[in-house]
């Protein structure tokens, strides 16, 4: 039995991950720790597990791995403590809010001999796996251009507080697509130009809530990406991940969550989309469980987290500088 703990329910994804752990026969949700006692207790009831208030006590439990779903800036201290306690780690994205933090996390895990993974569940979306297969098969020829979006609605709470989130929509919604493209094409990003703003929640938000990135990948592939919280409260769903690939032999359009029902309910008084596709989080958590059993890194490793953090950090740099900038890759 693989014993898992969840650290903090600050990020909503924690609830889905907890649910997935309970679905996996060879895994057990042993305990929850949360600096918000109420929230942690509530969650422990919901998922029939223990709540441990003291962090050191939590880490001294016979837990094999932890899932870190805290506020972005708290990923680092929690990961470092967990690594030093010998735990395998699956960290919510973005891995960290700065390159230095990401490096420190990776190096600490290496030294401690524990696996470090980043929660990029999109790698487990069936339509994305299929798209990757098409691209790798060469059916589309050489890829020339790609247009992507990761739109969402404003998650609220600490996401709008730079001290906890490290940034706004660009911080939140760049890394998924950056990671997917690196993984699907096996190529790195070379440069980025970014424009951003916060007109979607003017006067409410200090962070950016709409970003438009133009990137170049190895081999001169031109990429545009919209990273935003531009979905209003009345929108039928949380957001999207879309990608259009232009190849010399063909094109591929992907709307990763477009497996849905259109629901018109008088109870909701707004149109809703009911998703019926495969649950990507289950694949993510299963891989984490397997990585512990096999004593390896999870599928999206620390370095993948770092590379996508670099894209984000240099996007903000570009906006500040008002020009396209090179994405420098740190060695680790």
């Amino acid at each position: 039995m693989v014993k898992l703990g969840i650290m903090s329910f600050a990020h909503l994804h924690a609830y889905s991950y907890a649910h997935c752990v309970n679905l996996i026969p060879e895994a057990e949700l042993t305990a929850i720790w949360d600096d918000d006692k109420e929230r942690g207790k509530e969650a422990s009831k919901q998922y029939q597990t223990n709540f441990v208030e003291d962090l050191d006590k939590f880490l001294s439990l016979p837990i094999d791995g932890v899932i870190i779903t805290s506020e972005n800036v708290n990923h680092k201290p929690m990961a470092i403590k967990s690594a030093e306690a010998g735990k395998w780690i699956l960290c919510e994205k973005p891995l960290a809010t700065t390159i230095e933090d990401a490096m420190l996390m990776i190096n600490t895990c290496k030294k401690a001999g524990v696996g470090l993974g980043v929660a990029f569940p999109c790698r487990f979306l069936t339509p994305i796996l299929k798209a990757k297969e098409y691209i790798r098969s060469g059916k589309l020829g050489t890829i020339l251009s790609i247009s992507c979006t990761n739109n969402g609605s404003y998650p609220g709470g600490w996401f709008g507080d730079v001290k906890l989130s490290g940034g706004g929509a660009v911080m939140d919604h760049t890394v998924h697509v950056a990671d997917l493209l690196r993984w699907m094409l096996d190529k790195e990003f070379d440069s980025v130009y970014c424009e951003l703003g916060n007109q979607m929640h003017k006067g409410i938000l200090e962070t950016d809530d709409m970003g438009c990135l133009q990137l170049e990948m190895e081999g001169g592939i031109q990429v545009s990406h919209i990273a935003s919280w531009n979905r209003p409260k009345s929108f039928p769903t949380w957001g999207d991940v879309t990608m259009e690939f232009i190849g010399t032999k063909g094109v591929l359009y992907l709307d990763a969550f477009n497996q849905k029902l259109n629901i018109y309910s008088d109870f909701a008084m707004k149109t809703e989309w009911g998703f019926w596709g495969d649950n990507p989080d289950l694949g993510l958590i299963q891989d984490f469980v397997n990585s512990i059993q096999e004593k390896r890194d999870p599928m999206s490793k620390g370095i993948d987290g770092l590379r996508s953090v670099e894209v984000t950090v240099f996007a903000y740099e570009s906006y500040k500088a008002g020009k396209k900038v090179k994405i420098k890759k740190s060695k680790c």
Binding site: L144, S145, Q214, G220, S224, T248
Partner: peptide, 18 residues
Amino acid sequence: CQNLIEKNCAPLDYSQVT
């Protein structure tokens, strides 16, 4: 703007403009 003009893909072109 990024487009395919400099990449000699004519008649294909694809352009992204911020």
